[in-house]
C-alpha cells in the first residue's frame, strides 16, 4: 500500500515538473512557433492557450486509449488517429475563441490552427500509450499549464513593451517599442525567458541542496 502511494507521489511529481522544471516551451523547446510569433498581445496568448489545451488534452487521452489496441496496429495509424482528432478539435476551439475576442482568429492567422500540429502531443502521445487514461489526462493538464504560463508571461511582456497596454487597456508606461511585436523580438524574448527560468530553477535547486545538507548536519 505504502509502495503504491510512493509510486503515485513520484508520478505526480514527475508530471508537475512539466510546468516549470521541464516546461514544454522554455526548457524542452516544443511548440515554439506559436509561442514566438503569436504571443504579442494577452488576448492572443489566451487564444493560444485555449487551442493548445483543447487539442493536447483530448489527444493525449486518446493516445492512452490507443495504447490498449493490439500491437499489430502500426504506430503510424495511431498517429493518424491523433492528428485527425486534433484537426476536429479546432472547430470547437475556434467557436470558443470567438467568444473571447471576435477577431482573435484573424489576429493569430495560421498560428491558431498550427497549434493543432504542435510538437508537444507528437512527442508525448507515444509515451502516453503506455499510461493509464487518468495519468494521460493529468499530463495533458500539466503540459497545458506549462505552455500557458510561458505564453502568458511572454505575451504580457511583449504587449506592455510594444503597445504600452495590458489586455488592450492603456497603462502608465510612457515608452513604447512597437518592434517588440515582430517575430525577431519574439525569438529574443522567448530565449531570454528560457534563460531566466533556467536560472530560477538552478537557484531553487541550489537552495534545496543547501537546506538538505544543513538538515543532515543538524541530525548528525
Amino acid at each position: 500500500m505504502r509502495q503504491e502511494q510512493n509510486t503515485v507521489k513520484k508520478n505526480l511529481r514527475k508530471e508537475l515538473d512539466l510546468i516549470f522544471v521541464q516546461n514544454p516551451v522554455l526548457v524542452t523547446g516544443l511548440a515554439l512557433a506559436p509561442a514566438v510569433v503569436g504571443s504579442f498581445t494577452m488576448k492572443n496568448g489566451v487564444g493560444l492557450c485555449l487551442v493548445f489545451g483543447m487539442v493536447t488534452i483530448p489527444v493525449l487521452v486518446l493516445a492512452s486509449f490507443l495504447g490498449m489496441l493490439p500491437e499489430k496496429v502500426p504506430q503510424y495509424v495511431r498517429t493518424m488517429a491523433c492528428a485527425l482528432l486534433a484537426a476536429l478539435m479546432l472547430i470547437p476551439a475556434r467557436m470558443l475563441a470567438a467568444q473571447i475576442a471576435p477577431n482573435l482568429f484573424d489576429s493569430l492567422g495560421m498560428y491558431f490552427s498550427a497549434v493543432a500540429l504542435n510538437t508537444v502531443w507528437l512527442v508525448r502521445a507515444p509515451l502516453c500509450q503506455e499510461k493509464k487514461t487518468l495519468w494521460s489526462l493529468w499530463e495533458g493538464v500539466c503540459l497545458t499549464v506549462g505552455f500557458s504560463l510561458c505564453v502568458m508571461a511572454v505575451s504580457t511582456v511583449r504587449e506592455l513593451l510594444a503597445y504600452g497596454t495590458l489586455w488592450g487597456k492603456a497603462t502608465a508606461l510612457p515608452l513604447k517599442f512597437p518592434a517588440v511585436a515582430y517575430v525577431f523580438a519574439g525569438f529574443i524574448v522567448v530565449g531570454t525567458a528560457a534563460a531566466v527560468l533556467r536560472w530560477c530553477v538552478d537557484r531553487c535547486h541550489d537552495i534545496l541542496t543547501l537546506i538538505r545538507r544543513q538538515q543532515k548536519k543538524w541530525r548528525a
Partner: peptide, 14 residues
Amino acid sequence: KAFRGLPSELVYVG
C-alpha cells in the same frame, strides 16, 4: 550558464 543551449540559440535566430 543560464543562456547555454536553447536560450542562446533562440537569441541567435532572433
